[in-house]
């Protein structure tokens, strides 16, 4: 049985309330024991691989619930192989990839294509299916099929769901498959052609600003709809104080 010890690193694992300097003993690919560095008097045999983690941070495999692997369709930006390698290099062992590919990941065949391409990559890839067909904000996707083919959530990320009635139905319908709706919370008409946060910096640079209210109004709307429907809402890339306060209060 192969054995490994990761010595002297700062081990951080919020799930176990750990933050300190520990040696980690691994047997057969699983963590066997964790010992405080100063209290560890174990002898390490010559058959054990030793990783010196002095000066490094040691964490459980990180999960990124919001990545864009861009494949299929936008391979000139990124593909599943390059995105997976980048994730692994950054300490991630699992990623959730958004549906704004081309074609959009709104049906089983695209989901299966992504999962096929993800085989053998250094991280686990969990696809996110679209909320609406073609991300057009008109008709819901076949979420049951998306779920059974491997999607773990639904999102029209990149495009806000403008129609409140449709958002209500999405939260209601997805709940039967235990899939959260991940939102890109922005009101398109308030965003307009804005390219940065509204304020004196945008004014000075002569750029069109986006007010915080563009995010806040949609977060407030979606919280009300989540309450109404009992659906599971996940607000992606929260970026305003107002959103944080709204979400905190709603929780």
């Amino acid at each position: 049985m192969n054995r490994l010890v990761i010595k002297g690193g700062r081990v951080v694992d919020p799930a176990q309330n750990l933050d300190g300097f520990y040696n980690i003993y691994v047997m057969g690919g699983r963590v066997a024991s964790i010992k405080k560095v100063e209290a560890d008097t174990s002898e390490v045999g010559t058959d054990v691989d030793v990783v010196d983690a002095t000066g490094l941070v040691v964490v459980p495999g990180l999960i990124d619930p919001h990545v864009h692997l861009r494949e299929p369709g936008y391979e000139y930006k990124e593909d599943i192989a390059t995105g997976s390698k980048a994730a692994a290099a950054g300490g991630f062992t699992a990623v959730m990839c958004m549906a704004n590919t081309k074609p959009v990941n709104d049906n089983e065949s695209v989901t299966r294509y992504i999962l096929k391409k993800a085989e053998g990559q250094p991280v686990r890839v969990f696809p996110v299916g679209a909320v609406t067909q073609g991300q057009k904000g008109e008709r819901l996707t076949e979420m049951g099929e998306l779920k059974s083919s491997g999607c773990v959530a639904v999102s029209d990320d990149g495009v806000p769901i403008s129609d409140p009635g449709l958002m209500r139905r999405a939260l209601e319908y997805s709940s039967q498959f235990q899939m959260p709706v991940i939102t890109h919370a922005e009101d398109s008409s308030l965003v307009g052609h804005g390219s940065m946060n509204e304020g004196v910096v945008a004014t000075r640079l002569g750029l069109k600003g986006i007010p915080n209210a563009a995010e806040d109004v949609i977060v407030a709307r979606d919280i009300a709809l989540a309450e109404l429907t009992g659906g599971r809402l996940h607000v992606a890339h929260v970026s305003t104080r107002g959103s944080v306060e709204l979400i905190r209060r709603a929780k």
Binding site: E198, G199, V200, V201, A202, T203, R204, G209, P211
Partner: peptide, 8 residues
Amino acid sequence: LPAGIEKL
């Protein structure tokens, strides 16, 4: 009137 113009 753009936001924060008085700061100029």
